[in-house]
């Protein structure tokens, strides 16, 4: 509970400073009061914060994640742009099931969001340890192993470092 409060408070205060855009003492004092009050009210509903593994290496893992993510996002956009401007239908869509080893809700949400923004895949539903994914070009194969290897493996490896 203390850990949860500390994380919420720090996050809210950081957003407060970004939004006010100043480090003036009176703004910071109001920010501390507002962040503490909001955190006290809302921590009961923030169980997902316990899913983050707080280690000294967290910034490093986050950096690695964002590097992988932006590379995939930019590639995804050129891929989609190519399909959109190609005459005819340059797509071969299918809905496939994949398996994930992330057990926490936050981990699955994060993975699902990453998958949605990467080349040719869109998360449709979560079902226990399985994700339902719409794949715009299912040429490699629609069985669970192939799809998991092609879609999930890259991100899961990075996310597993700091999420349960």
């Amino acid at each position: 509970m203390t850990r949860r409060f500390a994380m919420t408070f720090a996050g809210l205060l950081f957003v407060w400073i970004l939004l006010t855009g100043t480090l003036a003492v009176q703004e910071i004092i109001v920010g501390i009061l507002v962040a503490a009050g909001t955190a006290a009210i809302s921590i009961r509903h923030l169980q997902w914060l316990d899913d983050v593994m707080l280690t000294p290496l967290l910034p490093l893992h986050l950096g690695r994640y964002f590097f992988t993510f932006f590379k995939a996002l930019i590639f995804a956009n050129f891929d989609v742009a190519r399909r959109v401007v190609t005459p005819g239908m340059a797509i071969r869509p299918a809905v496939v099931r994949v398996h994930t080893e992330l057990h926490s809700d936050l981990g699955k949400l994060w993975l699902a969001n990453s998958i949605t923004l990467t080349p040719g895949t869109l998360t449709v539903d979560l079902d226990g340890q399985e994700l339902l994914i719409h794949w715009i070009d299912a040429t490699p194969g629609t069985d669970l192993e192939t799809a998991t290897r092609e879609i999930v493996a890259g991100f899961e490896k990075v996310l597993k470092e700091f999420l349960k």
Binding site: N77, I91, P93, L122, V124
Partner: peptide, 19 residues
């Protein structure tokens, strides 16, 4: 406008608009 069904529309729409 060009994609044939709602899932493909979501695919092209989300990625392009986010970036």
């Amino acid at each position: 406008v060009r994609m044939p069904d709602v899932f493909n529309r979501i695919q092209t729409g989300t990625k392009g608009s986010t970036l």
